[in-house]
């Protein structure tokens, strides 16, 4: 790499690198050990490499994924620790056994959701630009279309960190999604095939001759 025209500050290290590199690669270029804040390395699906980011001459500080963000000269970057395991909102799939009680369950498991103060911090934090707050409000109102809002959520937890009411929006979204599947998804072709297997009419002959 010959082009070292860009200078970025990452966790206090001034790194000379190229604008063709991602922020994550800039860490590599700096020679520091990289054992944290890294996962899929470019696909933007694991949510590990979350950073706070300020561009040159800008007052604004935003959140972003380092693997998806190209280096720009003068960037200031700070990696964010991953959230310690969140067992704040606990439940098991057995909670959904009584399907007439689902809406109560949502509010019992995520009681903070109804206290959303509409600050919009979750929306502004989301690196995938999802309508997080809208999803939270739908879920709190028992509208399961909230599941759709969180379709592309990568569970980076930035909204959970951002939420002043401790709602854990992404976990709420996942809760609704999981509930939707666990309780309501019963495709007929799968049911039929499972029954055939139970009845023993769907055997596999491992010794079949193949060419």
């Amino acid at each position: 790499m010959t082009d070292l025209s860009a200078r970025v500050t990452i966790n206090g290290h001034i790194i000379k690198t190229s604008t063709s590199r991602s922020l994550l690669e800039a860490v590599i270029d700096s020679g520091q050990p990289l054992t944290d804040g890294v996962g899929c390395m470019g696909q933007g699906v694991c949510g590990s490499c979350r950073v706070l980011l300020r561009r040159k001459d800008s007052r604004e500080v935003t959140t972003a994924l380092a693997c998806e963000t190209a280096v720009e000269d003068g960037m200031q970057v700070s990696f964010l620790d991953h959230l310690p395991m969140n067992r704040h909102h606990t439940y098991t799939t057995n909670d959904w056994d009584d399907t007439w009680n689902l809406l109560n369950r949502i509010n019992q498991t995520f009681p903070e959701a109804s206290r959303c103060r509409h600050c919009g911090g979750c929306d502004r934090s989301c690196p995938k630009h999802l309508d997080v707050q809208k999803g939270v409000n739908l879920a709190a109102a028992g509208d399961l279309s909230a599941a759709k809002v969180f379709d592309e959520c990568i569970m980076c937890n930035l909204c959970t960190i951002a939420c002043p009411e401790h709602i854990s929006p992404n976990h709420l979204g996942l809760y609704i999604r999981r509930m939707t599947a666990s309780v309501m998804l019963r495709p007929s072709d799968l049911l039929l095939r499972l029954r055939q297997i139970d009845l023993g009419v769907m055997p596999v002959d491992p010794d079949v001759e193949l060419t």
């Binding site: 599941a147 999981r178 939707t180 309501m184 019963r186 495709p187 799968l190 297997i197």
Partner: peptide, 26 residues
């Protein structure tokens, strides 16, 4: 097929080709 059931029970969604979640086709 049982793995798909296991995943659905734990809350994984799958795309449907037709019909509704209950009784539709994957």
């Amino acid at each position: 097929p049982d793995c798909i059931r296991w995943l659905i029970n734990r809350g994984m969604l799958f795309d449907l080709a037709e019909g509704t979640p209950v009784g539709g086709k994957l």
